[in-house]
Design a binder for these strands. Structure first.
Length: 639
RNA sequence: GCCGAUGUAGCUCAGCCGGUAGAGCAACUGAUUCGUAAUCAGUAGGUCGGCGGUUCAAUCCCGCCCAUCGGCCCCA
């Protein structure tokens, strides 16, 4: 007689089922049999396959493809099918790892020849055959020795290495097979390859085994997949849309900047409009810093190499630095702004009453970034940081960190950004004592907690001189870019022997915070361009209004209007060319100009202007002064 | 730096099997004087990324270099 067990189903329902029933069967009985969108299930909170059989009483809930977890399982199964397709299509391929990722999945392969875009089509075709065969994914548990033997016999040395590196207490591992293909995997997987319908392989890229550049480079194939063909097509359409707001494209179309081979890679030339945009941001920042008790300072571009040796940069950052010889003396071109600020502090004896001291510099730095990482404005070799160094007492640290975090929050609010916060801890190649690192890390973490912020921890990702809090923004293609950062540093004050006289009349060592709010102005502008898709809010728009004349007869009045706007401090251009109005409007629209002022007979006669907003809305005829007031009103918010 | 792809006019892109290149838009000239997303016609514009090689002949085939794109590592 089969034992009955009690199963708790979603929605508070319960069922008495025979032991040995599978999760899928239990769910099918409980919810009327429609499991088409169920990828797997959770039994007592742990994800399992639908084929998992229930031995004892349990609470089960389905994992639907509509959930991010369900979609990940589907994509993970797609990566297995891709691995099978690759190995069946090409000889001599070894598999490494193949997880689901944010927008799809990948699998890493060792394949000496490498894959071509044409190969992807062949792989995709084979995947469709495997999917059409509608074969079940079958889970099997074996001893780890058995698994090692299996993969060794198949020549899969990456899988063997993964197995050997499992913790010693892991005695058994799970294998999944579909359509006669076996892979080492924790699971769960979808019930059958038939569920894999809507997918597309996107591109091939190199990737180091285990993400370590000392290891062999593998071939990674990226793909994406969804529950339905419609969702897949929608995703591909969004990718196309995202490309249209790529800052590199908009930078050219809106005439903001250029990157030019003749100058050199990673070096930006700002055109007039880009420079205007940048200047507006920088002016805003200076004001905001002065409001918050910062002092503006400026340091030199090159500093003697001895100073870089003293700071530790020469030992730990040399490969990223440029050097130049002047009068037989070697100078380092600054990759960071801290040294000058240290020397400003040291210029006289400091009292505890002076602290905290906050030195702010729009500091231009040069870093020798590896050629392969350069990317538009996001990753360049010369950039300007909105950098500050705060020197304070240990007791002031928490408050200063929180004030910076607030500043970041305020700034991100102004520009309308969502962001993620990460805490990065001590890396391998670092300077300073264990105790200082602990203190610094605790200070950052404490401030995050006190501020009630949610954050992730990145072990070993800190700067060489201290741990940091990073604030990350996403670009149009969902790549994350670090902008604001707060770094806590006990080491540099030590190395430069900074001190202040305390209440007790004794010398004490101050603590230093390195921090940026927008990060690098270049990168921030890149993210900003994509964020607004080039349609900047009025206060940031390099051109706020374009005066458009209908015919040549209207040019004198058009020029007059433009002059009045310019004199009122509005960034206005005139389009007095011999073109039809529709043409001029189209052009101003493509330039994302906030206001277009149409000047025709009516306006000349009435002495007014007819503003058209870039959203297509017409404001009717209004006086020039009224328009000036309107622009001032709408852009005064932040100025 | 590593893996892969790409590089033709200012921009977007054609160019077959090797026989020194085209389109649209932009620019310029002229006509048109026009009311809310492209007026018409004409003209000009290219060492086919660079350097070598193979060939009677290279945008095309081969090698090296440079740059860009997508990733990896790294990073503001």
């Amino acid at each position: 007689m089969v034992q009955k067990i009690k199963i708790a189903l979603p929605g508070g329902k319960e069922a008495l089922c025979p032991a040995g029933l599978t999760v899928g069967e239990a769910l099918a009985g409980g919810q009327g049999g429609n499991l088409a969108s169920t990828m797997a299930a959770k039994v007592n909170g742990l994800p399992v396959d639908l084929s998992h059989s229930l031995a004892e009483a349990a609470a089960i809930e389905p994992i639907d493809v509509a959930s991010s977890e369900g979609l990940s399982i589907l994509r993970h199964s797609m990566s297995h099918v891709m691995a099978q397709a690759v190995q069946e299509t090409f000889a001599g391929v070894q598999v490494a790892i193949g997880p689901a990722i944010e927008d799809g999945f990948y699998y890493d392969f060792e394949y000496a020849e490498g894959f071509t875009p044409q190969d992807l089509e062949r792989i995709e075709a084979r995947m469709r055959e495997i999917a059409a065969a509608d074969c079940p994914f079958e889970r099997r548990e074996v001893s780890r020795e058995e698994a090692v033997e299996l993969f060794r016999s198949k020549g899969e040395h990456y899988k063997v290495e993964l197995l050997n590196d499992l913790p010693a207490d892991v005695k058994t591992v799970s294998l999944y097979s579909q359509h006669g293909y076996i892979d080492l995997c924790r699971g769960p997987h979808v019930p059958s390859t038939g569920m894999i319908k809507a997918f597309k392989l996107l591109h091939v890229a190199g990737a180091y085994w285990r993400g370590d550049e000392r290891n062999k480079m593998l071939q990674r194939i990226y793909g994406t997949g969804f529950a339905t063909q419609e969702a897949l097509e929608e995703h591909l359409r969004l990718l196309e849309e995202a490309k249209k707001r790529d800052h590199r494209r908009l930078g050219r179309e809106l005439d903001l900047f250029q990157l030019n081979d003749e100058i050199g890679p990673g070096l930006v030339i700002f055109h007039p409009k880009g420079t205007l945009l940048r200047t507006i941001i920088e002016d805003w920042e200076k004001k905001e810093h002065l409001k918050r008790g910062y002092d503006l300072v400026i340091g030199p571009q090159i500093l003697k190499v001895d100073l870089w040796k003293r700071s530790g940069h020469f030992d730990h950052y040399r490969e990223n630095m440029y050097f130049t010889d002047v009068d037989e003396q070697t100078y380092g071109i600054k990759p960071m702004n801290c040294l000058s600020h240290m020397l400003i502090y040291k210029a006289k004896i400091r009292s505890y009453r002076d602290l905290p001291l906050r030195y702010f510099e729009l500091g231009t730095v040069h870093r020798h970034e590896k050629a392969g990482v350069l990317h538009g404005l996001m990753r360049v070799r010369q950039f300007t940081q909105d950098d500050a160094h705060i020197l304070c007492t240990p007791a002031q640290l928490n408050g200063e960190i929180r004030a910076i975090a607030d500043f970041v929050g305020y700034a991100m609010g102004i520009f309308g950004f969502e962001y993620e916060v990460e805490l990065s801890t001590r890396p391998e190649n670092s300077i300073g004592s264990d105790q200082d690192w602990e203190l610094a890390t605790a200070a950052l973490e404490g401030a995050l907690r006190d501020g009630g912020m949610t954050y992730e921890v990145n072990e070993g990702e800190g700067a060489f001189y201290g741990p940091k809090i990073d604030f990350k923004l996403k670009d149009a293609l969902k790549r994350k870019w670090q902008c604001a950062t707060i770094q806590c540093d006990f080491t540099l004050p030590e190395r430069f022997d900074l001190s202040y006289i305390g209440e007790d009349g004794e010398k004490h060592r101050p603590v230093m915070l390195h921090r940026v709010i927008l990060g690098a102005i270049e990168r921030f502008m890149g993210v900003l361009i994509e964020h607004y898709a080039g349609a900047f809010p009025l206060w940031l728009s390099p051109v706020q209004a374009a005066v458009l004349t209908v015919t040549d007869n209207h040019i004198p009045y058009g020029k007059e209007v433009r002059m009045r706007l310019v004199e009122a401090g509005i960034r206005a251009e005139g389009d007095f060319r011999n073109e039809k109005l529709g043409y001029k409007i189209r052009e101003a629209q493509l330039q994302k100009t906030p206001f277009m002022l149409v000047i025709g007979d009516r306006e000349v006669a009435s002495g007014q202007v007819s503003p058209r907003q870039r959203d297509g809305k017409n404001l009717g005829s209004i006086g020039v002064e009224a328009f000036i007031a309107l622009v001032r009103g709408q852009s005064s918010q932040f100025k």
